[in-house]
Every structure is written in structure tokens, then in C-alpha cells.
């Protein structure tokens, strides 16, 4: 479910300049907060040790995603010794869910909107942490789903999905989750 001001911003481009500026500002803060959430979640997440440890923590997202800019702003940030790097999930690959799924192999984190989330758990996700922004209409909600509740951003954690892709969450993170499956 999208926040009302997000919808307003999308639906009324004409008014965007005149009226919706405060709303868009609020939207941007929301996105920044969500990006920060993802960063913090990454902090409490442990990936399996790769054969050749990569310095970069690759965060795959679509430039069309409203979080794209906010995620890009986090580039270069240190995450437990790795460097945050936002990459375009669609570059050099097919569009849509399959693109996201194939990208999963080289991504550490895949950020997708609920609408673009895969219908089911991607088979070749590698060790990618799927973060689904918004409550997905499809059954797959990733390992972490960012949701808005009472104008607060919360998150649900699916530990089975995390286990399936081989990542672990800190118990501290789990304590903050709205729902833990």
C-alpha cells in the first residue's frame, strides 16, 4: 500500500509544481528513511562468506524505483567493512521480474517495489537479500518487506526465505520487526 502523498505525487504531475511540493518533500524524506532502513537492516545481516570476498556491497534497484536516488545517496557508506554500491538491476538484462531474479546472482541486496516483486521466490537468487518495498500483492514478500503502518515505516522479516538464500539476521533486528515469519 502506497502512502497517500506518494499517490498524489504520481497522479497529479501538473499540480506537482504548484501544490504538491510539500508532499513530494515528504515523499523524499520517506524514501531516505526507507533507504536508511535498508542500510541498517544490511548492518544486522550476515551474508555467507564468499570465496573471494568482495569489497562492495552491491545493492540492486531499478532507477524507476522511488528509492533509487536515496539508495544512490548511500553509495560509499561502510557496511560492516563493505562499501555500499547501488547498481541498476535492469542494466544488461531483461526487464521485469526475471531481470531482477537474474540480477540476484551478483546482488547482495535487491530492492524492488511490491508491484515488481517476483511472483514466487526466485530460484537463482544466490545470496541476495530481497527487500520488497510495500506490501506485495503477490505471495512473495522477499526476506524483508518494508511496510507503512500508522505513518510509520516498519518491516516484516521472513527468516525461512533468508535461510533459503543463506543469509542470517541479527536477533536485534528481529526484535524490531513487526512480524517475524
Amino acid at each position: 500500500m502506497m502512502a497517500p502523498y506518494l499517490r498524489l505525487c504520481a497522479a497529479l504531475p501538473a499540480l506537482h509544481l504548484l501544490l504538491a511540493a510539500p508532499y513530494c518533500l515528504a515523499q523524499r524524506q520517506d524514501d531516505q528513511l526507507k533507504a536508511a532502513y535498508i542500510l541498517n537492516i544490511a548492518m544486522f545481516t550476515t551474508w555467507p562468506a564468499p570465496a573471494a570476498p568482495a569489497r562492495a556491497l552491491t545493492v540492486c534497484a531499478s532507477p524507476q524505483h522511488s528509492l533509487w536516488d536515496s539508495l544512490r545517496q548511500l553509495d560509499g557508506r561502510d557496511v560492516n567493512g563493505r562499501t555500499w554500491a547501488t547498481v541498476d538491476a535492469g542494466a544488461g538484462a531483461g526487464a521485469g521480474a526475471s531481470a531482477s531474479a537474474s540480477a540476484g546472482k551478483s546482488c547482495d541486496i535487491v530492492v524492488v517495489t511490491a508491484a515488481r516483486a517476483p511472483r514466487s521466490a526466485p530460484k537463482e537468487a544466490g545470496n541476495a537479500l530481497y527487500v520488497v518495498d510495500g506490501t506485495p500483492s503477490a505471495p512473495y514478500a522477499g526476506a524483508v518487506a518494508l511496510v507503512e503502518e500508522s505513518q510509520h515505516i516498519r518491516f516484516d522479516v521472513d527468516t525461512r526465505e533468508a535461510a533459503r538464500v543463506g543469509i542470517k539476521f541479527s536477533s536485534r533486528l528481529l526484535r524490531l520487526a513487526r512480524n517475524v515469519i
Binding site: 532502513y37 541498517n40 548492518m43 544486522f44 541479527s170 536485534r172 533486528l173 526484535r175 524490531l176
Partner: peptide, 13 residues
């Protein structure tokens, strides 16, 4: 205990 709460700004937690 409050590390995560503080990072997420979760006062309630």
C-alpha cells in the same frame, strides 16, 4: 539491547 532501536530510531522498541 538498544543498539538496533537506536539505529532504526525506534523509540517504542
Amino acid at each position: 539491547n538498544v543498539t538496533a532501536s537506536l539505529m532504526f530510531g525506534d523509540r517504542e522498541a
